[in-house]
Computed example of a mutant assay.
Amino acid sequence: MISRELFFAFALFAAVMFFTPGPNNIMVMSSGLTYGFRRTLPHIAGVVIGFAFMVGAVGLGFGTVFIAFPVLQTILKYAGAAYLIYLAVMIAMAGPPKPGEASRGPLTFWQGAMFQWVNVKGWVAIIGTITAYAAIAKFPLNIVLQVVIFLLMGTASITTWTLFGSALRPFLTSPRAVRIFNIAMALLLLASLYPVFME
């Protein structure tokens, strides 16, 4: 039996969580501007599938590892923050690719997927989600529903943010404008770490 009220509450929560600015959204928007929508597709797929897989893994018992070894949460928190700082620097330094010039390129599928495991905001959201919406249905249907909703909302959100970045390409035509935009995105990415250090 599925609780309809809890199902819709969870769907609304997922929509708000995915569509509001966060590390994944900022990174794909910057990638959409710098490399275009098509080249960012592997990154999009990595984020969506990687995040949904993580929800399933935590829901099926992986989260108990963090209960047994709380120090892992601290390690993950600071490792994730360090990686986000590294990515912010890479985004800030990225300019539009020049014809005939080798470019670092957008994140690959595996890089996008593996990033989810050090995405501090993602971990907080997943652990909170699994516990708060466990009563959406009986186990393991509750986990299946959460994974499916995250797949749908994640796809819609990440695609929208990437398209927004791609849509800015005709307006931000000079390397200087792209650099300024990417620096602004890098600063927003760093700002997303504020809640992590304020815990």
Score class of each variant (00 low, 15 high):
Met1Ile: 14
Ser3Gly: 12
Glu5Gln: 12
Glu5Arg: 09
Leu6Cys: 05
Phe7Thr: 01
Phe8Ile: 00
Phe10Pro: 00
Ala11Gln: 00
Leu12His: 04
Leu12Glu: 05
Leu12Ser: 12
Ala14Arg: 00
Val16Ser: 08
Met17Thr: 11
Met17Leu: 07
Met17Gly: 02
Phe18Arg: 15
Phe19His: 00
Pro21Ile: 06
Pro23Arg: 14
Met29Trp: 09
Ser30Trp: 07
Ser30Phe: 11
Gly32Asp: 07
Gly32Lys: 04
Thr34Cys: 12
Tyr35Met: 01
Arg39Met: 08
Arg39Thr: 05
Thr40Phe: 05
Pro42Asn: 00
Pro42Met: 00
Pro42Tyr: 07
His43Phe: 05
Ile44Phe: 11
Ile44Gly: 09
Gly46Asp: 01
Gly46Thr: 01
Val47Lys: 09
Val48Glu: 00
Ile49His: 03
Gly50Lys: 04
Gly50Gln: 02
Phe51Cys: 03
Phe51Gln: 01
Phe51Trp: 07
Phe53Cys: 11
Val58Lys: 06
Gly59Lys: 00
Phe62His: 01
Gly63Met: 02
Gly63Val: 01
Phe66Trp: 08
Ala68Gly: 13
Pro70Thr: 01
Val71Leu: 07
Leu72Ser: 03
Ala79Glu: 05
Ala79Lys: 09
Ala81Thr: 15
Ala82Gln: 09
Ala82Trp: 01
Tyr83Cys: 13
Tyr83His: 11
Tyr83Gln: 06
Ile85Tyr: 11
Tyr86Gln: 06
Tyr86Met: 13
Leu87Val: 04
Ala88Glu: 04
Met90Glu: 15
Ile91His: 10
Ala94Cys: 11
Pro97Arg: 01
Pro97Ala: 03
Lys98Glu: 15
Pro99Asn: 15
Pro99Cys: 11
Gly100Leu: 03
Gly100Asp: 03
Glu101Ala: 14
Ser103Asn: 13
Ser103Pro: 04
Arg104Tyr: 15
Arg104Phe: 15
Gly105Trp: 10
Gly105Ser: 13
Gly105Glu: 11
Gly105Pro: 13
Pro106Gln: 07
Pro106Val: 02
Leu107Cys: 08
Thr108His: 11
Gln111Phe: 02
Ala113Gly: 06
Val118Phe: 04
Val118Lys: 02
Ile126Gln: 07
Ile126Asn: 02
Ile126Met: 10
Ile127Ser: 14
Thr129Arg: 00
Ile130Trp: 00
Thr131Lys: 10
Thr131Ile: 07
Ala132Arg: 11
Ala134Asp: 13
Ala134Cys: 11
Ile136Lys: 03
Ile136Asn: 01
Ile136Gly: 04
Ala137Val: 07
Leu141Ala: 12
Asn142Gln: 12
Ile143Phe: 09
Val148Ile: 15
Val148Asn: 12
Ile149Met: 15
Ile149Pro: 14
Leu152Tyr: 09
Gly154Met: 00
Thr155Gly: 14
Ala156Ile: 12
Ser157Asp: 02
Ser157Asn: 04
Ile158Glu: 05
Trp161Ser: 14
Thr162Asp: 06
Thr162Cys: 08
Thr162Ile: 02
Phe164Arg: 08
Phe164Glu: 10
Gly165Glu: 09
Ser166His: 14
Ala167Cys: 08
Arg169His: 04
Pro170Thr: 07
Phe171Glu: 02
Pro175Asn: 04
Val178Glu: 07
Ile180Trp: 06
Phe181Pro: 04
Asn182Asp: 03
Ile183Val: 09
Ile183Ala: 05
Ala184Arg: 11
Leu187Val: 03
Leu189Cys: 09
Leu189Phe: 06
Ser192Thr: 06
Ser192Ile: 05
Leu193Tyr: 09
Pro195Arg: 11
Pro195Trp: 06
Met198Thr: 11
